[in-house]
Structures are given as C-alpha cells and as structure tokens.
Design a protein around this nucleic acid. Structure first.
Length: 481
DNA sequence: GGAACTCGCCAC
DNA sequence: AAACGTGGCGAGTTCC
C-alpha cells in the first residue's frame, strides 16, 4: 500500500465526504419550536425592559445629547466609540483592526468600570442569543428540523464550514448562554444525542509533519502531560498535581493562553498579557497595564509568584535575580519560556517550521499528507497552520464517511446529524448507543490510522452524551461500563 | 434601496 | 523582523 494519498485520493475523499454530509444535512437536527419561540418572546420582553432602563440613565442621555445622533442606537459601536473617545475623552488604549475607531468590545468596555457599560454588554449578549441563534433556528427549520449546510469547498485550509444556520459555533463556554441556546436542540423522540470528538487532533496531526520526538512522546505516553509540564514551568509550581483545583485552573490557562497560541504562531508578549488577564481582574484594577513599578494583584497566585525568584536579563544584558513583581518581569519570564519551548523542548518541530516555510518560498505551494495542495500567497503562520488544520479535518471526514457507510449497510436507526471540525454528532437509537460508541472509536482510532499510515501517533476519541429525550444542553461525558 | 464594508462574537 | 490560524453571521454604517 502506498504511504501517501495522491490527488485522486483527495478528490475521492471530497466526493464521498460530500455524499455523507448531504445525508447529514438531510437528516437534520430536531429543534423544540415551542421552547424556542417562547424563549424568544421572553428574551424580547427582557431586552425591551433593559433597554428602557438603560435609556433612563444620565449616561445614555448625555451620550445622545452630546453626540447629537439623528438616529440614536444603543447597538451602534460607531456611536458608542464617538461618545466614549470624542466626548468623554476616555483613554483609547486599543483600536479596531482597521484602525478606524477605538475598540468597543467586551474587554475594552469592562476595563472602564462604568456600570452602564456593563449593563449594555448584558443587553448585547441577550440580543445575540435571540437574533443569531434562536431566531435563526426558527427561520431555518422545516417541520421542526434544522438542515444545516456542510460545505467542503469554502475554507482556504481545506477545513469544512457550516451555514444556514451555522451549527459549528453554538455557545459552549458561557454556561448561561450555552443552556439557553442548546435547550432548543433535541434528538428525535425516544432517541439521545451523542457527540464524539478527537482529543487534541491538530496537535497529533502536526506530529505527522514535524515528527518531533518530544511531541511523539507526549502523544504516545499517557503518563506524560504537556500542558501540565508547561504550567509547572510558567507558574513555577514545585509539586504540580492536576487534582488540585488551583493547579487545574493554571493548567487550563497555560493550555489556552500559551501552548495553543504558540502553535498557531503567537508570541510571548501576547501570551504574557493573556495569561495575566486570566487571573487578575483587569477590568476593575487596571493593575496589569504596561509600565514600571506596577504591582501584582493581591490574589493567591499573585502572592505565589511574588514569592518566586527568576533570572532575567536587564537592559544592559546582565543577568539579574528578581521576583515576578509586575507584567514587565512576567513578560520577560514568558519570553524565556518561549525560547526554551521552541529551542529545546520542541526543537525538531521548530526546525520543521523553518524548512517547511522555506520550501514554500521556493516552490509556491505546500502539500498536505491527505493528497491536497495549497498554493497562492501565504503568510508564514498560514503556511504552517493550513496543512495541520486541513489534514486534521480530513481525518474527521474520513471517519465520518466510514461511519456513515456502516450505518447504511447495517440499517442502523442511529443517524449522523452534525459535524464540528473534529467532532461527529449522532442522534442515537438508545439500544445502539454502546455499539455506535465502539464502532466509531474503532473507525477513528484503528481503521483510519490503518488506511493512512502517515499518522504516526495514537488517535484518541472522547464521547459526551445526553439521556433519552434530553436537549443538547445536558451533555455529560460518557462513562464506560 | 441595496451592495459592500466594518465590528463584534460565537465555535474549533 | 515581526508577531494568533480557520470560519459564519447579525447589525450598523457607508457608498453608489
């Protein structure tokens, strides 16, 4: 058997993928119309109430009066920016991407500590739930089922996308928002929802490209813990233990604030700032603004870090011993960790990034391990990220195709009803639950790596499911008997 | 009155 | 030397 798929294989993957995703679209995701329409009118009333209250405030009256808007609109970021930065002359620390106005996003507004802005953010959030999600469900549903389009022809990196409605961005992290939106989505009567996703798929697929021995070890040896190791290093923890709640929080912050951003191509200044925001209440204290002599917040972690000493180079390049007393020192600390991360820990990975980039610069294209080719103008980060994102998604697509074939061949009553980059969503006929979980796990972790020998580390899938007739808000992790 | 752009925010 | 990847979508705004 050949080691690498070619263009024909790539074509076949998209062809079969299109057919399997067409069936997914046709099956549809059941929506509880009664709940959804009730919730919409409930939210509408609440929004009207909050809007009225907001318009009573001196803050709003001053805003409208001073800017002299013909059509005052509390949802207009342009109007808000004019008021905050031109009239009230608040310090404009960040601009929008196009540099046309000062930022009016959540992080920026919270840092001003103005109660009316906090209220405005709340109204914005409720309106987003109502208009972007719930209303879209009602608009798009046909006889109580949403038939989302899954596209294979739109994303530059060869990932898939979803639209009308987009089911790949349903709220998850904010628990309140998650519950309101996901309560609208149900399995068929007497069925239950099951979501199976790959664990750290992109990290594992990247390993097939760079073949870094340290990353191979992290991916192969379940007793190792990359995020834990990095948390230890960043927060100077002597006896790291994932079961200690505080350590767990720090491990999570490390994963989302350092490790993943580094893989995407971010650098130490942003990482340090984001990690700092994670534990201090930036909005009310402003303690982490740039500059000298600014202290750490009073929290436990602040005290913990203050008790630690690190070596950094001062402005004249001389090594000095200091405590992590402010953002400047912390940034220097993260800079050293970044340099160790790519210079020692993942040296081979770093080397691949350079050779891969220079090969693109010579040839004008990059090839994916799944038989696809990306060409055209690419930034360095894009050049490094596309092959990983694309072929990671192809692993999911391949597994989905094989699973779909089995469901058809064996006339199973369970249906595939969705796909989110590295996850398949099933509408399960309860007697088939264990069989579906075992079968998909076998396809994803055994069959796909057997077909694609270039996969050089184990693949792992995790399962979440709801009880019979429960909505998508009730997902719990699957327990094995 | 609609097309195109901008901004913000949700997901992986 | 420079500095976070991929999308969809709603609402506001600007332009023609």
């Amino acid at each position: 058997m050949k080691l690498h798929p070619d263009t024909n294989d790539a074509y076949r993957l998209l062809h079969q993928g299109t057919l399997a995703l067409a069936r997914t679209e046709q099956q549809g995701f059941r929506v509880d119309l009664e709940y959804t329409t009730n919730k919409i009118s409930q939210l509408e009333k609440r929004i009207v109430r909050l809007e009225a209250k907001f318009k009573e405030t001196d803050f709003y009256k001053h805003w409208v009066h001073s800017v002299g808007e013909k059509h005052p609109n509390i949802y207009s970021n342009a109007q808000l920016a004019r008021y905050l930065y031109k009239v009230k002359k608040l310090e404009q620390t960040t601009n929008t991407d196009s540099e046309k106005q000062g930022s009016t996003d959540e992080e920026t507004l919270l840092q001003f500590g103005i109660p009316e802005l906090t209220d405005l953010l709340k109204i914005r959030k409720l309106k987003k739930i109502k208009d972007t999600y719930l209303s879209a469900f009602v608009r798009e549903q046909v006889n109580g089922y949403i038939h989302t389009s899954y596209n294979l022809n739109l994303v530059i990196s060869y990932r898939g996308s979803s639209s009308s409605p987009n089911l790949q961005n349903i709220p998850k992290r904010d628990k309140e928002t998650m519950r309101i939106v996901r309560k609208a989505l149900y399995p068929r009567l007497g069925h239950q929802l099951l979501a199976m996703d790959f664990k750290a798929l992109e990290v594992r697929i990247a390993t097939a490209y760079h073949k870094d021995p340290m990353m191979m070890k992290y991916n192969k040896d379940p007793t190792t813990d990359m995020h834990g190791d990095m948390a230890k290093q960043i927060f100077l923890i002597d006896n790291f233990n994932e079961n200690i709640p505080e350590h767990k929080v720090l491990r999570n912050a490390t994963k989302n604030g350092f490790v993943f951003p580094q893989f995407y191509g971010d650098y130490f200044v942003n990482c340090a700032k984001n990690l700092a925001c994670g534990w201090s209440d930036l909005s009310s204290t402003g303690m982490w603004s740039e500059g000298d002599g600014i202290s750490l917040p009073e929290g436990t972690l602040g005290k913990h870090l203050l008790s630690k000493k690190i070596f950094i180079k001062n402005s004249s390049g001389v090594k000095i011993n200091t405590t992590i007393k402010n953002l400047k020192v912390f940034t220097e600390h993260i800079k050293q960790i970044e340099s160790h991360f790519w210079g020692n820990r993942f040296k081979v990975y770093a080397h691949w990034k350079e050779t891969h980039w220079s090969k693109y610069q010579r040839t004008g294209y990059i090839d994916l391990l799944t038989g696809f080719r990306c060409s055209g103008v690419m930034s360095k980060n894009a050049c490094i990220n596309y092959p990983v994102q694309g072929s990671a998604f192809h692993v999911l697509l391949k597994a989905l195709i094989l699973m779909d074939e089995i469901i058809i061949k064996e006339k199973l009553k369970t249906k595939i009803i969705g796909q989110i980059h590295d996850e398949v969503i099933f509408d399960v006929y309860p007697p088939e639950l264990d069989y579906i979980v075992d079968t998909y796990r076998n396809i994803a972790c055994v069959q796909v790596p057997k077909l694609w020998r270039w996969i050089n580390v184990p693949l792992i899938v995790e399962s979440d499911y709801c009880q019979v007739d429960e909505p998508w808000s009730e997902l719990k992790s699957y327990k094995f008997s």
